[in-house]
Design a binder for these strands. Structure first.
Lengths: 225, 225
DNA sequence: CAGTCTCATATTGTTGACAATTCTGCAATC
DNA sequence: GATTGCAGAATTGTCAACAATATGAGACTG
């Protein structure tokens, strides 16, 4: 009842992140500090911190003296993120094949199982969280802090990109492809695992509409501004 | 004379970064907000922002209710950073070989020339800035925002690691190896370029004392604390 | 003498108010 | 009628004071 000190910075970040990933917050929308402070029932300072984190994650763009806006990733940026993901995640999977413990495998399989449940019950929120979480869990399992942080950034940006450019109705990252990757890792088959990962990422990217056409109106406005 | 609003956040970040890279600020030292506010003649709020950025770059560690301290990267973290660098920078160089313009090459060669000057005149500050800057320039030339940001983080951490674990008196990243890499890129020889880059990074890492022994005292103190 | 508890001090975290900047609507002018 | 200039409103940026928390010294006790 007496929520003395509202949600933490991290909680605010996650709520905003989810709102963006669920397309409830559209790119270009301004996130006014006072307004958000009222919504979350916290001071503006904490909102500012949350916005700074969201900017670091690439989800919002902060313009000095103007405010924070939900980012509009360009097609180029979208391709860029997926290019880096192909490189990094291939490296992640390769390293995992060489040093994966039974406990690690159990965690991975449990995660995929959760994904299956979420997909079966069609719980959008869970599907979004878990499909990104799988790739994050892979990076975490490697044990490299830096790789984990990098993947965190990539996944955040991917979520935004997916929200903006998703073409099909289905959500990306079906659990089946994830399961196959896990089993390839379990078999220490680096070759198959990296191939499956590359294929999986191509599949996800192919479900996006990254034709340059969509950007024309945007570019027009940018050119005239 | 009337410095109305002191240095910007970014300027403060750079000064602290350089102080750490030059070993004038040792790992473990606490960066007290009020003290820094007095030094830079700005308010604590701006110092807090700068510290947040430095934490994101991995140079300082913020402990809630305790304060900000210059990070002490562990041997494991150091190896981790160089592992990721090997992967990422190989990718950078490979991509550059496929799409490098004459203007790009000129920028790269100019940069190497500056490095030579700094080395010849033994200007430590410039040597540190430029040697990291070369790798950053490579990433920037690729044209991938994400890759650039990632390299920025990696270089920041590498600077700290070098400051902590450097064994030799010489500074790393001699301009000669950089020049060789540039020429391989100019020749569009991806094979040689990636090989040279890998060799260069191994060389830099080999000049560090990453034997596990050094950590014993550290662990001891940590254990007793 | 060792250990523990308490209190003073120093440092961070937060809040609210104020200053600077930008946007918007309206009116005056060409 | 369109454009420019201006004033008011709204929003962000900054600051200084206050509250919460951790540290360390010193006294007290077993």
């Amino acid at each position: 009842m007496t929520e003395q000190s509202g949600p933490s910075t991290q909680q605010i970040v996650e709520k905003v992140w989810l709102s963006i990933a669920e397309r409830r917050l559209r790119p270009g929308v301004q996130l006014k500090e006072e307004q958000m402070a009222a919504i979350f029932n916290v001071s503006r300072a904490r909102i500012r911190q949350a916005l700074a984190v969201l900017e670091r994650d690439g989800l919002v763009t902060i313009v000095p003296n103007r405010g924070a806006f939900v980012s509009k990733p360009s097609v180029e940026e979208a391709r860029d993120v997926f290019f880096v993901r192909r490189t990094v995640e291939r490296c992640v999977v390769d390293r995992l094949c060489k040093s994966v413990s039974k406990a690690d495998l159990k965690r991975l399989r449990d995660h995929v199982a959760k994904e299956r449940v979420a997909n079966a019950n069609d719980v959008t929120t869970d599907i979004i969280k878990l499909s990104g979480g799988f790739h994050l869990l892979l990076a975490e399992t490697v044990g490299s802090d830096f790789l984990f942080t990098t993947m965190r950034d990539l996944i955040s940006r991917s979520s935004l990109i997916t929200a903006v450019y998703r073409n099909t109705n289905r959500f990306n990252c079906g659990p089946d492809e994830h399961a196959d990757i896990v089993e390839a890792i379990a078999a220490n088959d680096a070759d198959t695992a990296t191939r499956l990962m590359a294929h999986h990422l191509e599949h996800v990217e192919s479900e996006l509409d990254l034709s340059e056409i969509r950007d024309l109106s945007h570019d027009l406005r940018a050119a005239l501004a």
